[in-house]
Structure formats: C-alpha cells, structure tokens
C-alpha cells in the first residue's frame, strides 16, 4: 500500500516509470499488464449501481472508508481501461477524502493519456476520476455528519 506516500509522490513515480518507455506499444504493454494484474472484483459488487456511466466498456467501481481514509476497488471487461483504473487506484486509494478531492492528477496528461485516449465518450477515464472524487466527497460529508458538526446538521434540517 502507498499509505505513506502522498498523492503527488505516487503521481511523480508513475510519470517517471512511463518516461522509460520508448514507444506507445511499450506503454500499452505496461498498462495491459497492470490491467491483467488488478485483483478481480467479487461478483457481489458487479451491480448496475456500481457501474461508471460514460464508458464504452463496463466499469464497476466501489469505495470503502476506514480510519478516515478512502479505499477503492474496481473492475472492467476491457483490459486497457482496467490498467488505467489500476493506476488511479494506486494514486488515490488510502488517502483522505480531502486529499482525493484536491488531487490534480496531472500525471494523466504527463504520461500522454489525455491526448492519446481522446476525451470522447469511449474513453471513460474522466468519468472514472469524477466518480472517485464523488465517492470521496460522499465520505467527507458522511464523516463530518458522524463527527456531529452542528452547522452541517442545522443546514440539512
């Protein structure tokens, strides 16, 4: 787990790794490999409500919170997308909601993924990021409710 690394540190690490590749074929080989290695998501999580909208392939994404940190698990029927999720999980999983919400995720552009996988409906990368940040936001609200922040409670009433 990358518990002791900041999001930015993990992002830098990935950018460094990608800088070693000479060709796009190598980059894709690597992403495909990550996809193949991503642990399989249990069938009980493969529900319609866990699907990320806006992807050409099916992507399931679930989140959990422990000790104020958010953990993600995901799966897809397409392996390149799975490799991309694997990187997002490596960067974001195990961090606090605030850290996740504020993450710039500049590494996606730096490793060439936004220009290479155009921002069309078929990509899904942006949809996944949005979904992960939404989860973080939901946990942030939930946590603050649990801690009995009166102002939040008053507002919601």
């Amino acid at each position: 787990m990358s518990d002791h690394k900041t999001i930015q540190e993990t992002e830098n690490e990935i950018v460094e790794e990608f800088s070693l590749f000479d060709s796009w074929d190598d980059k894709y080989e690597y992403i495909i490999d990550l996809g193949k290695k991503l642990p399989v998501l249990e069938d009980k999580h493969k529900l319609d409500e866990n699907k990320v909208r806006g992807c050409q392939s099916t992507v399931w994404l679930v989140a959990d919170s422990e000790n104020g940190k958010v953990y993600f698990k995901a799966d897809s029927d397409a392996v390149i997308v799975k490799g991309l999720i694997s990187m997002l999980i490596r960067v974001l999983s195990g961090h606090t909601p605030d850290e996740i919400i504020q993450a710039s995720l500049g590494f996606i552009q730096k490793i060439g993924m936004t220009t290479h996988l155009a921002q069309t409906r078929s990509n899904g990368l942006l949809a996944m990021v949005k979904q992960m940040k939404n989860f973080a936001l939901a946990y942030k609200i939930k946590n603050s409710m649990q801690h009995g922040e009166r102002s939040t409670e008053t507002k919601s009433n």
């Binding site: 894709y28 050409q56 392939s57 397409a78 390149i80 997308v81």
Partner: peptide
C-alpha cells in the same frame, strides 16, 4: 476474450 474497445485503442 477481448473487448472491442481494447482493439480500437491499439
């Protein structure tokens, strides 16, 4: 065993 999207990207 291969998703069309993976083929499209490659």
């Amino acid at each position: 065993k291969i998703h069309p999207q993976d083929i499209g990207i490659l």
